[in-house]
Design a protein around this nucleic acid. Structure first.
Lengths: 345, 345
DNA sequence: AATTATTACTTAAACGTTTCAGTTACTAAA
DNA sequence: TTTAGTAACTGAAACGTTTAAGTAATAATT
């Protein structure tokens, strides 16, 4: 199928290719007469001409394309699958981008894979990296010379923008809440704790709260595995096996909480009557479960929106105002926590 | 930041640009000596050269890029948000594409929006459209002259590939199951029924089963709204208000079922003791809820994989073997259905 | 009446590749 | 000794745009 190019339009309208380009891009400095404009528009319509955006970026250096990298090793393991957080974030990124005339070049990432192979040189206007795997790979990306936004990363480097939340503070908020409700033996259940990741901060926040309240942190109160539903099931089993030594848990991701919830019910432990849960993220799942989850709500849509805006600002070469963007968070009370009353008191 | 182009590499290696191109693309017809190859590779490494894929597609007509269009009006309304199905599907598409060296150009779509503005001419190797909005927009896409795969659409047109399931059969499977379990008054709860959509087929399947069993379909057993969690809550409320006239429901999407589940519990109706549910999709949510959902399982990952493969096959100009791909489905029994015993019998 | 501006275009280079069609220097066959 | 064949390259056009610079015609200013 022969494609319609700008030259075909030009010929049909009886003008030069550049005139067509000027008409289509309504360049403010250039003046085209109304009659010519009409002839060009007509020709475009008649021929069904659609500009080739590849050629456009090649010539103009801007592509209206934002690269988005999200961890996904294999389907069913991560990404939207195990944690809806990524899906919600991507959704927000896509929407914001589209509202501004941008589209997304999406790619999953694996830990051992070069970012370069992925976010290859396509004249991207910017790159958003979610759940960063730090390392050489990351720094190679700088070569592309485009603005890079790291979402939920504690990699500090003046060449990267970041958007995130105060994970430590959020975790403290959650743990404080349980303590305020009378709980003293509080489990910490999280995904794998990796350098520069969010879980290590959430662990610190948990510790902060416990220490401040003069509570001890027992070895058997700590659970760590994957950030997915299955690990929640496993953690619940472990809790039973270890002897049900806690009355509550701070869980670092809603999706794990859902698994814990299910696991506990299967073993006859009721939430919140027998066990209280505060978790983190406030994905839509948190509302849907029974009981619904009391959780630290981070503005996921806000995160996505900010990430895109940082790129748009950088592209419109406004001066780089804030490199690190920290969004607010709050605790939303739902039905997974009950006041603890000590029988002995 | 000055970019490194193929000419810079050529100069450094003391060869022509075309030689560099040949080395990098290891064209089988062209012979390059080992020494030259090494010099070029070294230069590439030293300069950190990354080929510009835009220029490559412009010159070569293949982009290793697949466009993916998924409905999303605004964040929180659809897409990953209200129905995890889209997220899981996208996940599978992305994975399959990446395994084959392709990346995704992702865009949300709105009903009133031109597809053209979205999937613009970027030398895409193919386009996957999910949850098709039929109409003029759709046919305009043909102009791009690339293979188009419609997922879950009943638009029949020899220019489009399709991948889907037999929705009517699936719905019959679900309803049959409830009937086999002794239910006679079975509600039908679904999202909006639109032309060429899947819900109309699922309605037909429900009717097939009811008729075959000689059961009547009462007006008040039919519920229709949005495909989202909130509508599930609403439907549950309506069920109560209308007088709890059914003992079971076939619900056309898991995400609605989750809402119904929650809504019923809030009104003291227990599932499955007081009310049985069979739903459709088998997204990961179906496993996570309490009780977990008995549901018609469609191979979501398979759908995504097939969609990508159809494009790859079409690109490698194998003859267009099958235009319409219908994937198998099955019913998975979980915990949301109980045998119904009539008290009067 | 001569100069300067303005309007409405056109020309041509540039963007970074691929790839067809040479070209040169050897080697093998006639 | 000519011819044909092969190995290892190079040159240049082509892909479809954008955009700086140029041009011709008309209008406004002196």
């Amino acid at each position: 199928m022969k494609r319609v190019s700008i030259k075909d339009v030009a010929k049909k309208a009886g003008v030069s290719a550049s005139t067509v380009s000027y008409v289509l891009n309504r360049t403010p400095t250039e003046t085209i007469s109304p009659e010519t404009t009409k002839r060009v528009i007509d020709a475009v319509e008649k021929l069904g001409y659609v500009p080739n955006l590849n050629a456009r970026s090649l010539a103009s250096k801007y592509s209206n394309l934002i690269g988005v990298l999200i961890p996904q090793t294999e389907p069913g393991k991560e990404f939207m699958f195990s944690n809806p957080f990524y899906g919600e974030l991507l959704s927000a990124i896509e929407y914001t981008a589209r509202q501004n005339g941008y589209h997304l070049l999406l790619s999953g990432t694996q830990e051992d894979q070069s970012y370069m192979g992925i976010a290859q040189n396509r004249d991207l206007d910017g790159i958003i990296i979610v759940g960063t795997y730090p390392g050489e790979n990351l720094y190679q990306l700088k070569r592309l010379g485009v603005p890079i936004v790291l979402v939920d990363s504690y990699v500090k480097d003046k060449d990267f923008y970041t958007v995130g939340i105060d994970d430590r503070k959020g975790a403290k908020l959650a743990t404080d809440y349980l303590i305020k409700k009378g709980h003293k033996k509080i489990a910490f259940i999280s995904g794998s704790i990796r350098e520069n990741g969010v879980n290590i901060r959430r662990w610190e926040g948990y510790c902060d709260a416990m220490k401040e309240a003069g509570l001890s942190i027992n070895e058997d109160a700590i659970y760590s595995g994957n950030v997915d539903y299955n690990y929640g099931l496993i953690a619940a089993k472990q809790y039973i096996d270890r002897g049900k030594n806690q009355t509550a848990a701070f869980i670092t991701a809603d999706v794990i909480s859902i698994g814990v919830l299910k696991g506990l019910i299967q073993h006859g432990v009721n939430v919140p009557e027998d066990f209280s849960i505060v978790s983190f993220d406030d994905v839509y799942l948190a509302r849907m479960s029974y009981p619904s989850l009391t959780t630290v709500s981070q503005d996921i849509a806000g995160k996505g929106k900010r990430a895109v805006q940082l790129i748009l600002d950088a592209t419109g070469n406004k001066e780089k105002s804030y490199t690190d963007c920290v969004l607010p968070l709050c605790l939303v009370e739902r039905d997974s926590v009950i006041e603890f009353r000590c029988e002995q008191c």
